[in-house]
Simulated assay, not measured.
Amino acid sequence: MTQYVTMAAGAYGGAMLARTQDQAADVTVGLGQRLAQRIFGVRGEGEEVPEPLADVIDDPANGDNQAALRKPIRKALADDTELAAQIRQWIQDAHQAGVRVMTSGERSPAVHTNHGIIATGDSNTFTR
């Protein structure tokens, strides 16, 4: 889910919480925007954006910023089961419509379903 919000942050910047859904030209970015608005609330243009989201807006490619964004998202979903169900449905609908998230850059995996190890570091060893 963080990837969708990050894509919207990169596309819209601080206005991502102020824009309406029909202004989103790209389906993937629109989904990220809806997710961010649902979790962080809709804000007027120029209103302050929550810090973890502001950091991603400033530097969407920064892995630390993306990791910090995951915490409030995870907390919001854990605290509100209806929200979690709604967002799960949005993402399923998006996947059925062909929306995919891709990452680029060194050591940036994008995974839908994983049943094994994903290692992005150097000289990793794993035992099973």
Results as ranks from 00 to 15, higher is better:
Ala25Val: 08
Ala25Pro: 00
Ala25His: 06
Asp26Ala: 04
Val27Gln: 14
Thr28Glu: 08
Gly30Tyr: 02
Gly30Asn: 07
Leu31Ile: 10
Leu31Phe: 08
Gly32Leu: 03
Gly32His: 02
Gln33Asn: 00
Arg34Leu: 09
Arg34His: 05
Arg34Cys: 01
Leu35Tyr: 00
Gln37Leu: 01
Gln37Arg: 08
Arg38Glu: 09
Arg38Asn: 05
Arg38Thr: 15
Ile39Phe: 01
Ile39Met: 02
Ile39Trp: 00
Ile39Cys: 02
Phe40Asn: 03
Gly41Glu: 02
Gly41Ser: 02
Arg43Tyr: 01
Gly44Phe: 03
Gly44Ser: 14
Glu45Asp: 13
Glu45Leu: 15
Gly46Tyr: 08
Gly46Asp: 09
Glu47Asn: 08
Glu48Leu: 11
Val49Cys: 02
Val49Ile: 15
Val49Gly: 02
Pro50Cys: 10
Glu51Arg: 15
Glu51Tyr: 06
Glu51Val: 12
Pro52Asn: 11
Pro52Trp: 03
Pro52Ala: 10
Leu53Gln: 06
Ala54Arg: 13
Ala54Gln: 13
Ala54Pro: 03
Asp55Gln: 15
Val56Phe: 04
Val56Arg: 01
Ile57Leu: 04
Asp58Arg: 15
Asp58Trp: 03
Asp59Phe: 11
Pro60Phe: 03
Pro60Val: 07
Pro60Met: 05
Ala61Pro: 00
Ala61Trp: 01
Asn62His: 11
Asn62Glu: 11
Asn62Ser: 14
Gly63Val: 10
Gly63Gln: 14
Gly63Met: 10
Asp64His: 12
Asp64Leu: 12
Ala68Ser: 12
Ala68Trp: 08
Ala68Gly: 07
Arg70Ile: 11
Arg70Met: 15
Lys71Leu: 15
Lys71Met: 09
Lys71Asp: 12
Ile73Cys: 08
Ile73Leu: 13
Arg74Gly: 04
Lys75Ala: 14
Lys75Ile: 14
Lys75Thr: 14
Ala76Ser: 08
Ala76Glu: 05
Ala76Asp: 04
Ala76Ile: 08
Ala76Cys: 05
Ala76Phe: 06
Leu77Gln: 05
Ala78Pro: 00
Ala78Val: 05
Asp79Pro: 01
Asp79Glu: 13
Asp79Tyr: 00
Asp80Val: 07
Asp80Ala: 07
Glu82Lys: 13
Glu82Pro: 00
Glu82Val: 07
Leu83Thr: 12
Leu83Pro: 04
Leu83Tyr: 07
Ala84Met: 01
Ala84Glu: 10
Ala84Thr: 05
Gln86Gly: 01
Gln86Ser: 11
Ile87Trp: 02
Ile87His: 03
Arg88Pro: 00
Gln89His: 12
Gln89Gly: 12
Gln89Ile: 04
Trp90Asp: 10
Trp90Arg: 09
Trp90Lys: 09
Ile91Met: 13
Ile91Arg: 07
Gln92Trp: 06
Gln92Ile: 03
His95Asp: 09
His95Lys: 13
Gln96Tyr: 04
Ala97Pro: 00
Gly98Tyr: 05
Gly98Val: 10
Gly98Arg: 09
Val99Met: 05
Arg100Thr: 13
Met102Glu: 12
Met102Asn: 14
